[in-house]
Write a protein that binds this DNA or RNA. Structure first.
Length: 423
RNA sequence: GGAGAGGUGGUAGAGUGGUCGAUUACGGCAGUCUUGAAAACUGUUGAGCUGCGAGGCUCCGGGGGUUCGAAUCCCUCCCUCUCCGCCA
């Protein structure tokens, strides 16, 4: 969430910046500022009364010891009056501050200066086009047909076991999943990211820390009996490693990578956009997460984009990189680059990675700070990116690499798969 | 899941109703000494909110309660450890 300080210092900038995300923030900003002012007034007043109460309590202790019972009784009466007033003020403050927080979390992160305004996906800027052109045989099939033809992914069986969006990978299909996960993890660790294997269920504090709660609650699977959420991305458990942490200056940056299955309810989605592997309720993803000092976070972002691009290049697939416009960016992001692979058989681009800088937005929720050169605590910047999400990589790989006699496995994956063709 | 013991600052570990944001040790930082380092000695060393400042307030796992006063007593939830049960 945004810091109160940034709102107090320049509310008009906040409103103008959020307009880039097509978010009309004026009403909320004004409400927050009023609540903040009220918060400080209530605190000033209650602090003064609490100070008096404490003084008197100490006094009473002395009187009791000295055996001056009557004076002590008198003082107790006085405290009772103070206490009535202070508890009233504290109750008011409590209510005020809850309201303040509930308003504050409604404000999305500010887009950074590089982000252009825009309504939706059609306004995103293509910053790079790469990879080989795709030439498909006459008989080219979409991946869901290929999956059936070679018996490598069974969507119907998943429906039987669980429901739509929970495919079963079989044979070379299953092996390919494992190969991709290992390949991604290896290339990430080689680039200096530390591998972690986090839980795939998190508590609500973690859900709040990265911004899934309260606004995206309906996107997550919820285990009610234990009050846990299935992770929608490894970003949640990995970033929350740093919740309530103050890092020493030399402990920043932190670079982590993790594989997890990801669980998303995707309520209300249907149609050909969700056909096959295009959108699933459970899918595999390898994530990279970084914690940076503010002055380094944009260099880190560029590095992450270049890193993801190197992975995509290694797979030899046609891709493009988009810089998302304000209207298409996520709630918590300050800037996002999306990677898409071209699916010739479907005639559409498939998103396989999203790399974002959150600046202090998550860190403020997480209470993630570092100690600067002067020994002061400062909020860190957090970043993350997919490197990569598997299903659409598999979709593009199956479709773009199909030949008359099978699907060709990219060179870099062969040490992991142990086969060079699916046939 | 059952029984018991616990959760205190970066760490270890005191503190069972009053001047305790908390003894002490270790660690960290600064200084003295030293050619330099170590050792020794001295000082310093939690976080947040608030205030121009002096200062004030809050926080001893979370929440609630008792009391003039709570780290300390009560209730409740969470977590850790030991034993038993179960089990990959």
């Amino acid at each position: 969430m945004l810091t109160l300080k940034s709102l107090r210092e320049d509310p008009e900038k906040v409103i103008a910046k959020l307009a880039v995300k097509n978010f009309d923030a004026r009403a909320i900003v004004e409400k927050v500022l009023a609540l903040d002012e009220n918060r400080r007034n209530l605190q000033t007043e209650s602090d003064a009364i609490l100070a008096q109460q404490k003084q008197k309590a100490t006094l009473i202790g002395g009187l009791m010891k000295a055996g001056k019972k009557e004076e002590a009784e008198q003082a107790k009466q006085e405290v009772a009056a103070l206490k009535a007033r202070s508890s009233e003020l504290l109750a008011q403050a409590d209510e005020n501050n809850k309201e303040l927080e509930s308003q504050l979390v409604l404000l999305p992160n500010l887009p950074c200066d590089m982000v252009a305004p825009g309504k939706g996906a059609e306004d995103n800027e293509v910053v790079k086009l790469g990879g080989p052109e795709v030439k498909l045989p006459e008989t080219a099939l979409p991946h869901w047909e290929l999956a059936k033809k070679y018996d490598i992914i069974d969507f119907d069986l998943g429906v039987k076991l669980t429901g739509a969006g929970f495919p079963v990978y079989k044979g070379k299909g299953a092996k390919l999943q494992r190969a991709l996960i290992n390949f991604f993890l290896d290339i990430n660790t080689a680039a200096g990211y530390k591998e972690v294997e986090p839980p795939v269920m998190v508590n609500s504090a973690s859900g709040f820390g990265t911004g899934q709660l309260p606004d995206k609650e309906a996107q997550m699977y919820y285990v009610g009996l234990d009050d846990f959420y299935l992770v929608p991305t490894a970003e949640v458990p990995v970033t929350n490693i740093f919740r309530d942490v103050i890092l020493a200056g030399d402990q920043v940056p932190q670079k982590m990578t993790a594989y997890t299955p990801c669980f998303r309810r995707e309520a209300g989605s249907y149609g050909k956009d969700v056909r096959g592997l295009n959108r699933l309720h459970q899918f595999d993803k390898v994530e990279i997460v970084r914690v940076e000092k503010p002055e380094n976070s944009y260099a880190a972002l560029d590095e992450m984009v270049a890193h993801v691009e190197s992975i995509v290049n290694a797979l030899g697939l046609k891709y493009r990189i988009l810089r998302l416009c304000g209207g298409d960016m996520s709630f918590t992001s300050a800037i996002t680059y999306d990677f898409e692979l071209w699916s010739a058989a479907q005639g559409r681009w498939l998103e396989i990675s999203s790399v974002s800088n959150f600046e202090t937005y998550q860190a403020n929720r997480l209470h993630l700070r570092y100690r600067d050169d002067e020994g002061k605590t400062q909020l860190c910047h957090t970043l993350n990116g997919s490197s990569l999400a598997l299903p659409r990589v598999v979709a593009a790989l199956l479709e773009d690499n199909q030949t008359e006699d099978g699907i060709i496995i990219p060179e870099v994956l062969r040490p992991y798969t142990g086969f060079d063709k699916i046939d």
